[in-house]
Design a protein around this nucleic acid. Structure first.
Length: 456
RNA sequence: AGAGAGGUGGCAGAGUGGUCGAAUGCGACGGAUUCGAAAUCCGUUAUACCGGCAACGGUAUCGGGGGUUCGAAUCCCCCCCUCUCUGCCA
């Protein structure tokens, strides 16, 4: 669920602190490829941005194109001056060797001039590139043609519904009551040792967590995903790589002392595994899965709807990531969608799959499927997974490439999805399966848990 | 955390101011040889940007940033990382 919907939150584009780990110069290179799309498919880009209701699209795109022209002119001038300076240096070297001091000094006058020109050009170039980058960082990914043209969550397209909603008795409880009744998840304790949004899982609750993680990881492995266990703290470069920085700086917990960020999703470390790599064709597609805790500050998003497990600062999630050649990425997306759907079916949860509309999609995504499960006692759908194809949007920043036929390097497509995020799954399992005897767990979990019924 | 050593192309490893994008070896790729293979021999083998239809040319990159110099992989400063020893520790 990276780059989730936050059309407003991204407004303020912050420069990173220049001290510790300045944004690598390589991002400039990455930006060029994005430019090629802007230049060659301007109409498609504008149409896509319109679908997203990106208001300043025309002006921004035009500004980028204008800056690009200036940039290229400057680059050419700069390179030429540099070439001349290099040539002079060679000549001076030759003269010095043969003892022709006076002649050498005469040439030095010209090099001084060139140096000034080069400096001017370099400064201007850096300024233009920065302006260009700031604009490009503001421009979201271009939606896939199948993305519906809506404005808000109401306009998302329901792709499919599955499972059957249970009929609960009159004394049915929401999960925040059930967890107290069975004493399996304790918010008060978490509150004491950390704060709100950091619950403590206890007894059967803790075992259920571990069971779900194992179940999800095993399912991923069976589907051909290679398991990795990445760090949960990442550096600044990784934050830029997957697009959490600079837009969502405030959403991540930040350790200022070491300038590291607690991951909001395993997408960040896992996808960054392939940053700055040229991946051999026979290694593709890359399919990785990993379990990590995830940390989100969720600043400003607390309200009546976020009771209990609906929104936490720390939660567990198994993430699946694929990196594919461009022509295969939408097939991979469908495959991932099917994988997540199969998980929900095995958990016997009523679910629906949404194709997010242009206005509701995350910044970095080209096409996103959201998965929601029915939380019977709350009477609402809860998002438990978000499966997205980012096309080259992340690969561009990551410099994640492969060598195409003919030897040219090309950007790969990156995809990821939750498979699955635990808390809301747990909420639905508790609410939907409550009974007088206790909470009946789906059969597939029994062996993982070591029990099939949560009781007092 | 303290002391020392070091970061060079896919890997190993030279290079301490002047055609060095970088010797050499390995690996990989193409070719020759072979019935085929091994061995051997010849050649190719980084990335990005700019210009060009292309061939090709130019520029930059030797951990990152800044400085000295006509000229820096080589000298100076700052930062990051790795290794060894000592300390601490799950």
């Amino acid at each position: 669920m990276p780059g989730r919907r936050s059309p407003r939150a991204r407004a303020a584009l912050k420069r990173p602190a220049m001290c510790a780990a300045p944004r690598p110069a390589s991002t400039f290179a990455a930006v060029m490829l994005q430019l090629s799309v802007l230049k060659e498919q301007t109409a498609r880009v504008l149409a896509g941005l319109a679908k997203r209701h990106f208001k300043t699209a025309e002006a921004d795109v035009q500004a980028v194109l204008d800056l690009d022209q200036r940039r290229r002119a400057l680059q050419t001038a700069h390179d030429q001056a540099q070439a001349e300076a290099n040539e002079l240096a060679r000549q001076i070297g030759g003269l010095m060797k043969s003892g022709q001091r006076a002649e050498a000094d005469a040439l030095k006058a010209r090099t001084a001039e060139l140096k000034a020109t080069i400096k001017t050009h370099a400064d201007e170039l850096a300024a233009v590139e920065q302006q260009q980058n700031e604009l490009l960082y503001k421009i979201p990914n271009i939606p896939h043609e199948s993305v519906p043209a809506g404005r808000s969550a109401q306009d998302n397209e329901v792709v499919r519904e599955g499972g059957t909603k249970p009929t609960l008795g009159p004394d049915a409880q929401p999960h925040w009551e059930l967890i107290k009744q069975y004493d399996i998840i304790d918010f008060e304790l978490g509150n004491k040792i950390t704060g709100a949004g950091f619950p403590v899982y206890k007894g059967q609750g803790a075992r259920l967590q571990r069971a779900l993680i194992n179940f999800f990881l095993d399912q991923a492995r069976d589907a051909g995903y290679y398991e990795v266990q990445p760090p949960v703290l990442v550096n600044e470069a990784s934050g830029y790589g997957t697009g959490q920085l600079p837009d969502k700086e405030g959403q991540m917990y930040h350790d200022a002392q070491d300038n590291l960020y607690l991951i909001p999703t395993a997408e960040v470390p896992i996808t960054n595994l392939y940053r700055d790599e040229i991946i051999a064709l026979d290694k593709l597609p890359i399919k990785n899965a990993g379990y990590t805790p995830c940390f989100r500050r969720e600043a400003g998003s607390w309200g009546a709807d976020v009771r209990g497990l609906n929104r936490l600062h720390q939660f567990d999630k198994v993430e699946i990531v694929q990196i594919t050649q461009p022509e295969n990425s939408y097939a991979a997306l469908e495959q991932m969608q099917a994988h997540v759907e199969h998980l929900l079916q095995q958990l016997e949860l009523p679910y629906r799959i949404l194709r997010l509309c242009g206005g509701d999609m995350g910044f970095t995504s080209a096409l996103t499927y959201d998965f929601e499960v029915w939380s019977a006692a709350q009477g609402r759908w809860l998002e438990v997974s978000s499966v997205s194809n980012f096309e080259t949007f992340q690969a561009n920043r990551l410099k994640c490439r492969y060598r195409a036929e003919g030897g040219k390097t090309q950007l790969l497509h990156t995809l990821n999805g939750s498979a699955l995020a635990l808390p809301r799954i747990v909420a639905a399992l508790l609410e939907n399966n409550q009974s007088a005897e206790g909470i009946r767990l789906p059969a597939v979990l029994h062996s993982y848990c070591g029990f099939g019924l949560i009781t007092n």
